[in-house]
Structures are given as structure tokens and as C-alpha cells.
């Protein structure tokens, strides 16, 4: 469009002017394309390096850079993943012919723990927040406005503020190192945002839609479950994706509230952090471990990209 307008304007100047102008635009576009292409390559290289390294032979990894892997395509292997995933001792023959046995990193166990932590930590706050959002939007009770303003105020309160007091409570009542404890913590830290987002959505449902349900004698509870929840699915989904990525990738909350359970219930980020400590230079294992921890968010990213973007945009102001 812009090109067309500019070209029309320059018609009077004769065909050669017009042509050189079009050429300049074309050249500009090519330069921009190249710059962007270079940026994209730079942005992708770190991840690509890790992906390739995770499939390379352990000796090759320490002998040469991953960018030379093209020469040894046949040497690519799943061994690193086998060793990292399982929790049992893993034996292999090293370059000098000795059999080495090492403990596996039990990434599979950490994966399941992450799943156990994440799924309820996503669904519970959504449920509680949806109830609350409905209450704030459609029910009348004393203190309604003050309470909602309080929620807006704590939207960006940093969760650091809660770590010490809540940890002390947990130690007192025996919730430290339990799944329930960490679900509740993620619920607490995710609720202000969830309530705020869902309120914005639920309060825009037309009053007439709900009133027809009340005329049919439905209670608030029934209306909420049968009518409002299904109508709010888009908002629920975008918050769910944000919270999923947030909880899955969280390290701090897990370190504080799950450390009490020892190694058994470590989540993926904790396990990966341990590996950085103990496997410092075993890049073939570290990269495989890192990739296992990325796989679920990456699948989400590629399969639900539009919702993913929307979710992250909606949830970006979390405290």
C-alpha cells in the first residue's frame, strides 16, 4: 500500500526515477531481511547447540565443538538420554576401554514430580479464582469493593515477601516438603492475577444471559458451574498456559517449599540445578537433562502458539 502511494507520487518524475525508487525499496527490503535473518540465527544458536550436543557421543562432546557434529552424523546417539532419564546405575565403556558405572540422574522421576506439582498448581488457582471472580462480578456483599482493590494492590507484590513467614507456618503444621504445600503456595502467588484476569472477563458477560438462568430457578452455584465456567474457557485457557509455564519453570518456590522432602520429590528445575553442580563438565548429560526439562513447554509453545502468546501477554505482570 505504502509503496503504491509513493510510486504514484513519483510518476511525474519519469520512468527512470520511478524505477530507481522501486529498486531502492527493494534493496532496503533485502538488507532488512538479512539483518533479521542474522538476528534469528544468533537467537537460535544457543538452543540448537544444546539440542545437538545432547545427541552426541560423550567423548566427541569434549573433543570438539558441537558445530562440527555434521561430520559424524552416524555417531549421534540416545545414550545420554538413557543415562539421564533413568535412576539406576548406568554402565558404559569409555574411550580407553574401561567399563564405567555412574548413577543415573532420574530425570524421569523429576519429570513426574514436576507434573505432580504443576497440574494441580494450575487448576486449583483457576477454580478458586473463577469462583471469586464470579462473586466479585455478580454477587453483592459488604466489603466487595475494598476486597477487590486489595487484590489489585497485591498484584505485583513480590513473592519473596512471603517465603519466610510461609515457610515457618509450613514447618509448624507439617506442610513443608509436601505436594499440598507447594500447590497452595503456587495457588497463593498466582491467585491475585488469576482473579483479576478472570474478573475482567466474567464481569463482561451480559447480565441478560445470567438473568435468564436465574428466572429458570438456578442457584448462583449452578449458574456458575453450568453457564459461566463454560463461557469463560478462553480466559481460563490463557491464564492456564501462563501459570503452566510459570510453575513448570519455577525454581525459587520449589527450592523453598520442596527441599524438605529431600531428593525424592525434587522437580525438574531443582534436579537440573543439582546436575549443574555435580555434572559441571559432563556437557553430554547436562544438555540432555536441559532438553528433557524443555520438552513440555516447547510442545506447548509449538502446538498452542497463539494461546501461548496470549497467555504470556495476559499474565506478564505477576508478582
Amino acid at each position: 500500500m505504502a509503496d503504491a502511494a509513493a510510486v504514484t507520487l513519483h510518476k511525474a518524475a519519469g520512468p527512470s526515477r520511478k524505477k530507481s525508487y522501486a529498486n531502492a525499496r527493494k534493496r532496503q527490503k533485502i538488507i532488512i531481511s538479512i539483518i533479521l535473518l542474522v538476528i534469528c540465527i544468533i537467537w537460535t544458536l544457543p538452543t540448537l547447540g544444546v539440542l545437538i550436543t545432547s545427541f552426541r557421543d560423550r567423548d566427541e562432546v569434549s573433543r570438539s565443538g558441537w558445530w562440527t557434529a555434521g561430520r559424524e552424523l552416524s555417531a549421534l546417539t540416545f545414550e545420554n538420554y538413557k543415562q539421564v532419564l533413568g535412576g539406576k546405575p548406568f554402565s558404559y565403556t569409555n574411550a580407553s576401554g574401561d567399563v564405567v558405572t555412574e548413577r543415573g540422574d532420574n530425570m524421569m522421576g523429576a519429570f513426574l514430580n514436576s507434573l505432580t506439582v504443576t497440574v494441580p498448581s494450575v487448576i486449583i488457582p483457576i477454580l478458586i479464582a473463577a469462583f471469586a471472580a464470579y462473586g466479585f462480578a455478580w454477587l453483592d456483599f459488604p466489603g466487595r469493593k475494598v476486597l477487590f482493590v486489595a487484590i489489585v494492590a497485591i498484584l505485583v507484590v513480590p513473592l519473596q515477601i512471603a517465603l519466610i513467614p510461609i515457610l515457618r507456618d509450613y514447618q509448624r503444621i507439617g506442610l513443608n516438603g509436601t505436594f499440598l504445600g507447594i500447590w497452595m503456595a503456587h495457588t497463593g502467588f498466582g491467585l491475585p492475577l488469576a482473579t483479576y484476569l478472570l474478573f475482567n472477563y466474567i464481569s463482561t458477560i451480559p447480565r441478560s444471559t445470567l438473568e435468564s438462568a436465574f428466572i429458570d430457578g438456578a442457584s448462583h452455584f449452578t449458574t456458575f458451574v453450568r453457564l459461566v465456567l463454560p463461557l469463560s474457557v478462553p480466559a481460563l485457557a490463557s491464564f492456564a498456559i501462563f501459570q503452566f509455564i510459570w510453575v513448570w519453570n519455577d525454581l525459587l518456590v520449589a527450592l523453598v517449599f520442596m527441599s524438605g522432602s529431600g531428593e525424592k520429590y525434587q522437580v525438574m528445575t531443582q534436579r537440573l540445578l543439582n546436575m549443574i553442580g555435580t555434572r559441571g563438565q559432563d556437557w553430554h548429560l547436562l544438555t540432555a537433562g536441559a532438553f528433557i526439562s524443555l520438552i513440555l513447554p516447547l510442545i506447548t509453545f509449538f502446538s498452542l502458539q497463539r494461546y501461548f502468546v496470549r497467555g504470556l501477554m495476559a499474565g506478564s505482570v505477576k508478582g
Binding site: 538452543t47 544444546v50 519453570n249 537440573l272 547436562l286 537433562g289 516447547l298 509453545f301 501461548f308 504470556l312
Partner: peptide, 13 residues
Amino acid sequence: LPMAISFVGAGVI
């Protein structure tokens, strides 16, 4: 894409 990656994962990378 890196938005999907955890800070710890990015640490390894």
C-alpha cells in the same frame, strides 16, 4: 521461543 525455557534451562544453555 526462549520464553518457553526456564531460567535454569537457559542457565545450562
